[in-house]
Design a protein around this nucleic acid. Sequence first.
DNA 1: TTGAAAGCGCTAACAT
DNA 2: ATGTTAGCGCTTTCAA
Lengths: 355, 355
Amino acid sequence: MPPQPPHPSSAVPSPVGARPPTILDVARAVGVSKSTVSNVVRGTVGVTPETRARVLEAVSRLGYRPNVVARQLVLQRTNVLGIVVGDLANPFYAEMAKLIERCAAAEGFRVMFCNTEVADEIDITGLESLVEHRVAGVVFLSYLAGSERARQLVDGHMPAVFVTCHADWGDVVAGDDRHGAWLATEHLLSLGHRRIAYFADPIAEDPADRERQSSFVATMRRAELRPVVLRRASAPGRVMRDGKEATFAEVLRGMDRLTAIFAANDLTAVEVLDAADRLGIPVPEQLSVVGFDDLMLARLARINLTTIAQPKATLARLAVQTIAARIRGEMTGARVRQIVDFTLVVRGSTAAPAD
Amino acid sequence: MPPQPPHPSSAVPSPVGARPPTILDVARAVGVSKSTVSNVVRGTVGVTPETRARVLEAVSRLGYRPNVVARQLVLQRTNVLGIVVGDLANPFYAEMAKLIERCAAAEGFRVMFCNTEVADEIDITGLESLVEHRVAGVVFLSYLAGSERARQLVDGHMPAVFVTCHADWGDVVAGDDRHGAWLATEHLLSLGHRRIAYFADPIAEDPADRERQSSFVATMRRAELRPVVLRRASAPGRVMRDGKEATFAEVLRGMDRLTAIFAANDLTAVEVLDAADRLGIPVPEQLSVVGFDDLMLARLARINLTTIAQPKATLARLAVQTIAARIRGEMTGARVRQIVDFTLVVRGSTAAPAD
DNA sequence: TTGAAAGCGCTAACAT
DNA sequence: ATGTTAGCGCTTTCAA
């Protein structure tokens, strides 16, 4: 669409006026040296109240704002954190991104986002750009192990923290996925379910997903039950079971006669709810569903999903505190794994099986 | 929670090694001058293929990456866009943020987010920080008119574009809220509804909300019907009607005997669905609901919300193209308003009224 | 085709 | 208490 005619009341917008005043402009206006202005601006001691007042007056009169770029160059460090996130449109990452931005601001850091899926070995231009901007550290909200190029770029150059994901070359802040999956599976078992399937995340089968899956399998085996693992097939409404494609209906009603499904995350769980609705299978009467993440969406009356809640605010806080401590050099030595607890949130999508 | 003991296999992480190589390191390694390296790195003409090859070899051997901070200082401009967003946890903003980040990357810009609610005259430290970082331009995803301080900070210093929000001092890329509201209201009218209410956004009653509301009122008046306007009260399940507080049930079943509600946005619409569900009022049989935005969540089978779709990808693209053109000086002169079309998406939350 | 040198705006050590 | 000065890493004339 071509630009519309100008708005009636429009003025010429910001001719992106003369360059913003520098510290030298202020110094000249007051009749002092750059250093004095610098000292006032940075709030260091040793400036006469009277000089300080004159400087501050000029600062506000000229609208002076320190040029962070110049400061960063001379200080050899930035106050910018790089945030690598796989998909901001995924509410889980969006919530985490917001929390991290808030915590970072509280610690005096700005954030630069990069929506590149680091899974992609090919396109890590986003990360490269972050590194070229000399971000003080990188927070990975998603990271697929074995991204050697990503590691080369960051490791040894700046601190990295992995939040709800894992790598062996940086600090990790994550939940205990094995425990979470155990909570979910145990909840279903204690309700009396025996024929339970795990529905893997069709998008990113990352280490977290694999942990959840293997913990589900182990828990089922311990109960002497046969674990079934499903994943979405190419076509909607179709799933893969043991490498063989089938319809959702076949799996649910067929030989497995499933009474419960534990989904890798809430988004996947909602897909399961949708499929069940379409097939006329009532939840939770005929099918119990458990999700993972406790997205806002799981709380909606119409969804009302039993799920495993991640303490997002805690994860974000720990991640930012950790990387801030590394950046400030307050924390040195071996990398650290901080594991937070998941909790089971029982809502309306689970009940005792009918048979 | 205190840091856990180090991971068994942990090595000391990135001692944040020696400073990254500079252009001078490369120059010395090859035995040429800084300028030559600079010319090679930036791909300018006039370098012997042979020298170029030797420089590139050293670049990759030393792992040299240009320092964008230094480049920005000398060039007197950055390739960073500031994005001001009210609430990243709101899926609409999250989706827009993602799209804008993607478009910006395609145009060669990085983005720096700032989750400050610009409504807040008090806390615009986020915007201040963006300005101090000398971002090349600011994209406002939410802006409440009258934020004089925000205007002071940005106007006249760098280009600004307002996406799905409005201000009279920058370019605007938005949908036609009046038309969208007309589409929604007309849809309900054509289904036969006569007693329809508008449910205002309880959070941010911004200009877009007011446009939708006044268009709803005008459309109703044109049909010689009485427009009802509701907004959420302090307590859940309670609403304000004409300044008087009432329960949702009273409003729906009481004197207004509403058969349809047009909500300011999808999130508000979902609140209405929740309330109706709790009251045992079937949707759409007893109550039709229309939302606005077409969030991913509106598509879920369990929500299945009739709504007005914003062309988010188009909005993001136009916004980034516009600000990029301003930054590059390709676009000068009066500010521009680009208005995109909304479309009605009919789903299962609307039907003809029962009576 | 390549090199030397100035300078972007700021901080910090040192001098006054 | 304030001023002087030397860079931070890079781009960009201008010379060679």
